[in-house]
Design a protein around this nucleic acid. Structure first.
Lengths: 332, 332
DNA sequence: GCCCGAGCGTGGAACGTTTCATGTAATTTA
DNA sequence: TAAATTACATGAAACGTTCCACGCTCGGGC
């Protein structure tokens, strides 16, 4: 009787059952060449005993865990959820499991999650964070999504600048004469603000008048309402094209405009950013700049797992595309 | 020189640095009483060296991993995403990390994921699956969401039967004279079909005529279109109330009806099921029966982690509630 | 027919913890 | 004051792997 029947069988049990040495069993489960005769005996014994490799013992010994961690703001929001889904899928395809931690957009929680998963000896971390001076620690592959750190941390993002340009160009092409950019938050650094910069660059180039408005979180929609009031003359809003830096904001602003009797896209045309779809159908919430979610996920995973981490790019911008979705006059 | 400076420090290093025995360091990190003097020395040394417990060594020794696994169909769909988000949050609060695996609704993948995470020595599994005869294996806490297995596997679900009753009662209360139930798929066993059973029970009780229609996946909307055609007389659809077993289906059917010039809620009132919201705002897609997502998550986690697994309930039904969302005439 | 090398299975050390039996010093009891 | 008891730090064994040095066997070359 090698061990109590309730405990999980170990390699030692398999070795005894198969009549081979411990090292031979190990080789079989690591795909290291072993005589056919032996391999068969080991596999039979393993099947008979219901043996499974203990990944904790393996992780202790090898310092490799086949586990990556995701440090994520939320799974609630469809954009983050779809990106998380794609990343988990890519990691699974490469034989990695994924530990998911959720920060709720909180800087402190972000640091805690990173410390926590580091302690867990994961092989790498993919994070989407808001804390600009996060300590990602040494010696562990780290890929950031959509946030560009100073340190040697590679960042995968959609081409925000081009996306902003594209949105402005589309609105102009569709006949708008005066454009408005809207976003939440205040930071003018980092990836997020490149959408505005691209937008403004395109407006300047085409000599179309524009304004940019930041909606601070604490102020709600008050700044927008004020802007709307002060730029409405004779019941007509001066601006006939709006680019919002997320689909969500676009949707909210649209509802606000409709509530005031301003029709979209008849009176004002609008474009959002992200490419969020209703349920998992094809239908968009608004005309939008679509982020290449699958490609971003694939790129992030490749960057995280691939060997040559000595020469990592600082920033990878992936191409975006425009698609009409009901808030512009090109919608079918 | 205790060890190369590039490798992570171990308890042995901390013990040497603090001038105490290995066992003492272990006690400190397990909150086992230790003299104040010693505790302080150990904590100082650990801080100085940047020591962190190696959870793989600990897991190997204790056979406890502080890790749970989620076997999930997708993170794409907002209902599943929000439930996953809530579960991960509950687990984090209790000091557990979560490994997420994604099955894409595939029965084979479901079994593979379960085998995979079992091999990983997780402390428990929470799953939302479609394969009715999944082998969940022995000796590992397992909680199923929304799917009731035969075996001793506890299931957490919303009160589907009451939800169906509630939907029918609401439609009748709002003036509907003839009701239709719609769902995808075919299985008449399990939790999913209880929504129909509750619906039909309420219709019978109140003596309101009704029909139930199953939309097989391969047939698309053809069965519905046929039903619609054969029950439309003089341009008027016989049925003035529809209960769909998901918000998604409700939304799709609504669009289909509107496309045919049948107005919701003026001509037909509709109620869905799930309580999905647009983005993370409060706005619903349709009038709906809301599942108590947070409570389901909390219950599942409690069930998974709490000690007394000898007397587990087979099924826990959590209360649902109705909320108008634009597809019924009680919407504001 | 002998020797050398290739090929391959063997057994043990090591990974970083936890835990338990052991030993020592401090405190209490008669 | 001596013995008994408590309190607590100690160090080694064990958890289930991986991996390397070792040694056995077999075959080819001269």
């Amino acid at each position: 009787m090698t061990r109590k029947s309730t405990a999980a069988p170990t390699m030692k049990d398999v070795a005894a059952e198969a009549g081979v040495a411990l090292g031979t069993v190990s080789k079989v489960f690591n795909n290291i060449p072993v005589g056919e005769e032996y391999r068969a005996r080991v596999l039979d014994a393993a099947r008979k005993l219901g043996y499974q490799v203990n990944s904790y013992a393996r992780g202790l010994k090898t310092n490799k865990t086949s586990t990556a961690a995701l440090v994520w703001p939320t799974l609630w929001h469809p954009f983050f959820a779809s990106l998380a889904d794609a990343i988990v899928g890519c990691l699974m395809k490469r034989g990695y499991r994924t530990i998911v931690t959720i920060t709720n957009y909180d800087s402190t929680a972000e640091q805690q999650c990173i410390d926590l998963v580091r302690q867990n000896k994961v092989d790498g971390i993919i994070a989407l964070t808001y804390n600009p001076d996060l300590d990602v620690g040494p010696d562990l592959p780290f890929v950031s999504i959509d946030r560009h750190f100073k340190a040697g941390v590679p960042c995968v993002a959609s081409d925000n600048f081009s996306g902003g340009q594209l949105a402005a160009a589309k609105l102009i092409e569709l006949g708008c004469r005066r454009l408005l950019f809207l976003r939440r938050g205040s930071g003018v650094a980092g990836e997020a603000d490149k959408r505005r910069m691209g937008f403004e660059a395109a407006c300047r180039e085409k000599e179309v008048p524009f304004a940019s408005l930041f909606l601070l979180d604490e102020a709600g929609f008050a700044p927008f309402d004020a802007f709307l009031a002060s730029h409405t003359h004779g019941g007509v809003f001066d601006y006939d094209g709006i680019f919002c830096n997320t689909d969500r904001l676009c949707y909210e602003i649209q509802k606000r405009l409709e509530g005031l009797g301003i029709h979209v896209p008849a009176d004002v045309q609008m474009i959002g950013y992200d490419g969020i779809r209703k349920f998992d159908s094809d239908e968009l919430f608004c005309s939008t700049i679509i982020q290449p979610v699958d490609q971003m996920a694939q790129t992030a995973v490749d960057l995280l797992l691939d060997d040559d981490r000595s020469s990592l790019p600082a920033l990878i911008c992936l191409p975006v595309r425009y698609q009409p979705g009901g808030t512009t006059r090109d919608s079918v």
